[in-house]
Design a protein around this nucleic acid. Structure first.
Lengths: 339, 339
DNA sequence: CGCGCAAATGTAAACGTTTTCACGCCGGTT
DNA sequence: AACCGGCGTGAAAACGTTTACATTTGCGCG
């Protein structure tokens, strides 16, 4: 900037004013400065600018991972909203435990205006201590945490409820469930939702039909194997806590000669793109993940401009929608007769 | 930091030394400073630190978009490598044209140590002018550009060659091709690769069998419809420039009652996850996109530590691998007899 | 013709670190 | 007893901007 100032025979202050249009500058001076700046290919130093302005024009995004389509969509939604506000994204992933999150948060201080944190495996309490003071934060997919401006979550409860209702309406009585890893907040919420919805539908949850899983296709496959291997008739419906496991289960059942949905109905959760392409196409619950990201970013921006909103624990839920495809049908006649 | 210094009864210089372990400090002083720092929940300001140190511990990533699995994987690969070096990622997407890229690049100056740029729709020349001087840059999936430290690309040529060879070996003579959008560098490279490989295999390219496409499933569907609608027998093989289009074509052919691979063989490119799940499973070319990202980041780090490497146009190609699945077989007997 | 006022510009002090340099202190050597 | 070297520390100058304040300039008006 000094060079530009010198060559344009003005002070650095004037250069700054021209570049930011922050104060009136005479037409010819302005033109001269711009000309020189272009000639020198000058562009201002972001760090210095951030330091002085106390605003970084960037949002920090802290994620446990980047694997799979969920994060891709999430990031896209966040980016969309950030882009609109002229902000960049400082992304830091692979932070699973509270310590990791804490480190990432500290590294962001002074380089971002606000924080978007997703830490499904960190308890609300440890998260609260990891969050910085004075940096507006929105929590994703976890219970609202002290110190956070807001929390945005997927409607796991509603999603599981609508599935169970639908199954019950079709006439299913025994609905098996494949859980996700219990330390993940979503997995826990979906299991809770399943139990509640079953009770609400007047159905009993047989504990032998609540299977362990880990959100992977492989895990779903194993759970289905286990179901097949157990003695006694199969349940008439199988509800997996996510699509990856549902797909795995589909495979295992198919291999075992079980007809879907003739012998058993299978339902997933998430509506990953593959769900449309497996045979039979998977009935599932769709959540607009990009909207989740976009809403979180929007809330963060609101907290940035309106400091009153800080830490008031505002909460938002992104709705879930039942997507009915071929993997889902009424229970077989034999099962109905059995009762 | 001043507060910490005051409470610990030392100078800010000492606080800095303790926090960075950048100079010997007496054990008890150090302990005292750390204690106070923790108590005050102090964490250093990134902008100030970057400004003074002239190193940001961040990499800039400029992408045209964030849609789909490609970017997710790319970002994951980059992140993996960056993480290892303790760097964060400053991501800025939705920059399609040269001007957009230029703006993004300028916004990154002073906040990142190096740049990873993917701009498939920007010509090498305009890209060269958009790139900053003095900021090491690695170009992704485009021809090496003046001023870039290195370029990493997917082996489009090798990928198309291996497909065409395989098809020729199976006995196919007429291989149709669905192009991608011509302004994209990959799409162009794949079309070129197809033509070259066909010639190398002693096959002629019928221009009526080179179909327009746009990399979308919808586009692939339309291209296949066009093929079906045209008079004369179908070609025995159809090679789509990406999987999305191949899947679309699969659908259109299936709808028209064409048997795959009995009547026609279909091959894609990319090996997106869906490719495994469509029926019949899609033969395709796999490129490890995460490796592409990781290699690019690794090269950038090398350029950062070894300034000699700057702008020497080092080039790296990520290999492509043929994945044979059910959508691919020998030409039908009728076609062979036809000749 | 000088006065005052607004517009345009310059000066310099921040912003929060890191780092150079200098200084005081201590133990060991001449 | 004077000297030297190293260790621990503090003072202050950067880093590249923005901006409050001061200054100059030009202009209309009494």
């Amino acid at each position: 900037m000094k060079d530009v100032a010198r060559l344009a025979k003005v002070s650095v202050a004037t250069v700054s004013r021209v570049l930011n249009a922050s104060a009136p500058v005479r037409e010819d001076t302005s033109a001269r400065v711009l000309e020189i700046a272009r000639e020198l290919r000058f562009s201002p130093n972001g760090a210095a600018r951030t330091l002085k302005r106390r605003q970084a024009s960037a949002l920090g995004v802290i994620l446990p991972d980047l694997y799979g389509e969920f994060f891709s969509e999430l990031l896209r939604g966040i980016d969309l909203e950030a882009q609109r506000a002229g902000h960049a994204l400082l992304v830091s992933s692979s932070h699973h435990d509270a310590r990791g999150v804490s480190v990432a948060v500290r590294a962001m201080r002074g380089r971002v205006d606000g924080l978007l944190v997703m830490a499904p495996e960190v308890s609300a309490a440890s998260l609260a201590t990891a969050l910085p003071d004075g940096l507006p934060t929105v929590i994703l997919n976890t219970a609202p945490t002290a110190g956070a401006a807001a929390a945005v979550t997927v409607d796991n409860t509603g999603g599981t409820r609508v599935v169970v209702h639908h199954l019950a309406a079709l006439g299913h009585r025994e609905v098996a469930f494949i859980c996700g890893p219990s330390r993940k907040a979503d997995a826990a919420a979906r299991l809770r939702g399943y139990r509640t919805a079953m009770r609400a539908a007047g159905l009993t949850v047989h504990e032998s039909l609540v299977l362990r899983g880990d959100f992977t296709e492989q895990g779903g496959w194993q759970a289905a194997r286990q179901l097949i291997a157990s003695d006694g008739p199969l349940p008439t419906a199988l509800f997996a806590a996510n699509d990856a496991m549902a797909v795995g289960a589909l495979l295992a059942l198919h291999e075992a000669g079980v007809v879907i949905p003739g012998d058993i109905t299978v339902v997933g959760f998430d509506d990953i793109p593959i769900a449309r392409y497996v045979t039979p196409a998977l009935t599932t619950v769709r959540v607009a993940i990009d909207v989740l990201g976009a809403r979180a970013a929007a809330l963060l921006f609101r907290a940035l401009t309106d400091p009153l909103m800080q830490g008031n624990g505002h909460r938002e839920v992104i709705p879930a929608e039942l997507i009915i495809r071929q993997s889902c049908g009424p229970p077989p006649a034999s099962a109905t007769a059995r009762r």
